[in-house]
Simulated assay, not measured.
Amino acid sequence: MASRKVFVAGATGAIGQALVPMLVEAGYAVYGSTRQAARAPLLEALGATPVVLDVFDAHALDEAFARIVPDSVIHQLTDLPAGLNPTLMREAVGRNTRVRDEGTRNLVAAAVAVKAARLVAQSIAWAYRAGPMPFDETAPLDVDTQGDRHVTINGVVSLERQVLAAPLVGTVLRYGQLYGPGTGAEQATGVSPVHVVDAARAACLALKRSEGGIYNIAEDNPAVSTGKAKRELGWHPSKDARAGHPAPTNLA
Results as ranks from 00 to 15, higher is better:
residue 107 L to H: 03
residue 221 N to F: 04
residue 77 L to V: 14
residue 205 L to T: 03
residue 93 V to L: 14
residue 180 G to L: 01
residue 226 T to V: 15
residue 12 T to V: 14
residue 102 E to V: 12
residue 8 V to H: 01
residue 13 G to P: 02
residue 146 Q to A: 09
residue 108 V to W: 01
residue 55 V to N: 02
residue 177 Q to M: 10
residue 48 A to I: 00
residue 141 L to G: 01
residue 96 N to C: 00
residue 188 A to Y: 08
residue 220 D to A: 12
residue 210 S to R: 10
residue 250 N to E: 13
residue 240 D to A: 14
residue 237 P to N: 06
residue 59 H to C: 08
residue 141 L to A: 07
residue 244 G to R: 04
residue 250 N to F: 13
residue 89 M to L: 15
residue 73 V to E: 01
residue 181 P to Q: 07
residue 39 R to W: 07
residue 33 S to C: 11
residue 204 C to Y: 03
residue 84 L to Q: 04
residue 161 R to G: 11
residue 104 T to H: 00
residue 43 L to A: 08
residue 70 P to A: 06
residue 20 V to D: 10
residue 145 T to V: 11
residue 56 F to A: 10
residue 5 K to Y: 07
residue 244 G to K: 13
residue 180 G to I: 01
residue 116 A to L: 04
residue 125 A to I: 02
residue 228 K to W: 07
residue 193 P to I: 02
residue 32 G to Q: 08
residue 130 A to L: 03
residue 8 V to M: 02
residue 106 N to V: 02
residue 63 E to P: 00
residue 187 Q to M: 15
residue 199 A to C: 09
residue 75 H to L: 11
residue 84 L to I: 11
residue 229 A to H: 01
residue 25 E to G: 08
residue 234 G to P: 09
residue 34 T to G: 10
residue 92 A to S: 12
residue 72 S to L: 05
